[in-house]
């Protein structure tokens, strides 16, 4: 049986792992390769690296880092952040990651996703969606897509956007709730479910994990195929193994 995936996420800035609250206030959480090795041993199902390095020149550091990580683990991993061109994707894949996550560039040019999927295959194209709740006039919940690391609203509806990206060849959706990210109050279950029900490709829930029950909710009520978490793992509040044992006891299929 296909298991639900537990994915530690490492935000990378200038080669170091950092973690912020609501996309700001960054705290240092250690060396990236060490973190990757640690999670590999702990039984993580995949790893995600989000490069939040601001300047373009420093992105070379990221390529080197991806290479070092790829040499140290036998686990699928995804790299995202600042990917704009087919060459960016090529360079990252050649450096050794298995998938790339595209966010801002997809909104600016949806055809880019189509081209990337055609060139490299859907299996390695993840579309990341940062979404924020907004009530409409009928008081029903809607979510808006934000880009540029959550700084720029786009007016695009997140559910419609996910469907479109699926159609354009995305192989997976990495969905982050901006309202919940870093709060440790739990994932946005409604958002996760809305997106997961709208597309036939896997959805990774992200943003808000604080307890193991939050992960359980996202995988069951939220219908997510995978959960991504950063701080609960980096600060060793829970180990990946504890997490999986907990989920298994509650009847979720996990790889132990």
């Amino acid at each position: 049986m296909l298991t639900k995936r537990i994915i530690p996420c490492l935000d990378i800035k200038d080669g170091r792992v950092v973690k912020g609250v609501n996309f700001i206030n960054l705290r240092d959480a250690g060396d990236a390769v060490e973190n990757a090795r640690f999670y590999d041993k702990e039984g993580a199902d995949e790893l995600v690296f989000l490069d939040i390095t601001a300047s373009h020149e420093k992105r070379k550091t990221t390529i080197e880092l991806v290479n070092k990580v790829a040499e140290s683990i036998f686990l699928p991993f995804t790299v995202g952040g600042g990917i704009r061109t087919i060459d960016d994707i090529r360079n990252l894949l050649m450096a050794g990651c298995d998938k790339v996550s595209i966010n801002t560039a997809a909104v600016k040019d949806p055809q880019f996703v189509k081209k990337a999927a055609r060139r490299f295959g859907s299996q390695c194209i993840v579309v990341a969606i940062d979404a924020k709740c907004k009530m409409n006039t009928r008081k029903t919940k809607k979510w808006e897509v934000f880009i540029n690391g959550g700084r720029t609203p786009t007016g695009i509806d997140a559910v419609a956007w996910a469907k479109k990206m699926h159609l354009f060849g995305a192989g997976e959706i990495l969905l982050t709730s901006m309202d919940y990210d870093g709060t440790k109050e739990g994932y946005d279950i409604e958002l996760t479910r809305a997106i997961s029900e709208a597309v036939d490709i896997p959805v990774i829930a992200s943003g808000g994990a604080g307890t193991l029950d939050h992960l359980y909710e996202a995988l069951t009520d939220g219908k997510a195929d995978a959960v991504l978490a950063a701080s609960i793992f980096h600060y060793r509040e829970y180990s990946v193994r504890d997490t999986k044992n907990y989920l298994k006891k509650k009847g979720v299929a996990v790889r132990l």
Partner: peptide, 10 residues
Amino acid sequence: LKVPHMGWNN
């Protein structure tokens, strides 16, 4: 079920 079949399976 979702396609691609992605993740860990027996």
